[in-house]
């Protein structure tokens, strides 16, 4: 079987297209790269969707936390404490338990699948971390900009959406980039704790684990996952860098904040 045949057979295996059976013997590097890369699609799926939905939830939570109304800021504080203060590993485990209970009561049976259930956990988790970032950014919006908005006669919603929020996003963006990277890293935990893999469709770590088990050699499959993630991390950094450039396009070049990959937030 040539490498091209292997790619055709296994490149989409993680979503159930192609060869039904995984390779059983005579493992080649090509097979390992192809299948682990195939699993990477799930890491990207979880990362992109959790980040997208989490972004909106995080903004809402940051506003709730900044609100003076205890009915808004208390729940937001608790939400952020629980999801930032406990390991994702344990969150996955507990969430799967709860989702099973809901399913047994007859509602929402799709919650126990990784595609939906793990996505929800990841989304809530990233929302909590991002909410803390956005909240910090909201508080550091320069007073002068708000006063300028007042001077233009802007109030309430229009002042928020046209002045405060864009500025806070600019301030939050470097830290938010880190959060995005760590979220993608965290997606490797999905099939590793809590959520079962159906019909051998798993993420990059799942297939690496399969090969490490079959070849009894951990020194090839896991470094391959590492290589894929370095590439993924580079891709995320450049996409977020482009957005950062757009966010700061009104500033003179030397004043634009440079994106630095700093480990501010992780789980």
């Amino acid at each position: 079987m040539s490498c091209w045949d292997t790619i055709q057979a296994y490149a989409l295996r993680s979503i159930g297209i192609g060869e039904r059976l995984l390779p059983k013997s005579d493992f080649t590097l090509c097979q390992q790269f192809t299948l682990i890369g195939s699993g990477l699609m799930w890491n990207i799926y979880f990362g992109v969707l959790a980040l997208t939905f989490g972004f909106f939830l995080a903004n809402a939570m940051a506003l709730a936390k900044a609100s003076k109304n205890p009915w808004l800021n208390r729940p937001a504080n608790w939400f952020i404490l629980v999801f930032r203060g406990s390991p994702l590993f344990i969150q996955f485990f507990l969430a799967y338990f709860i989702f099973l209970r809901i399913k047994q009561s007859g509602a929402l049976p799709w919650l126990t699948s990784a595609q939906a259930g793990a996505l929800i956990v990841l989304m809530l988790n990233t929302a909590a971390y991002s909410a803390e970032i956005f909240y910090g950014a909201l508080r550091s919006v320069p007073k002068g900009e708000v006063e300028a908005a007042d001077a233009y006669g802007m109030t309430g919603w229009s002042r928020f959406i046209r002045v405060i929020w864009p500025t806070s996003m600019r301030l939050a963006w470097p830290a938010y980039t880190n959060e995005a990277i760590f979220l993608f890293h965290a997606t490797t935990l999905v099939f590793f704790s809590g959520f079962p893999a159906w019909q051998q469709r798993g993420d990059a770590l799942y297939y690496a684990n399969y090969f490490a088990d079959k070849t009894f050699n951990p020194f090839i499959a896991y470094p391959i996952v590492g290589l894929y993630f370095i590439a993924l991390t580079l891709a995320i950094t450049s996409i977020f860098g482009l957005i950062n450039r757009r966010l700061n396009r009104h500033l003179p070049r030397e004043k634009r904040p440079r994106l630095r990959f700093r480990p501010q937030y992780i789980r």
């Binding site: 770590l205 690496a208 490490a212 470094p223 993630f229 580079l234």
Partner: peptide, 17 residues
Amino acid sequence: SVVRGVPDIIFFMFFVI
């Protein structure tokens, strides 16, 4: 940059050996 670009769990899988 390399250690930070890779999920920590990947290192945990083979570093000890």
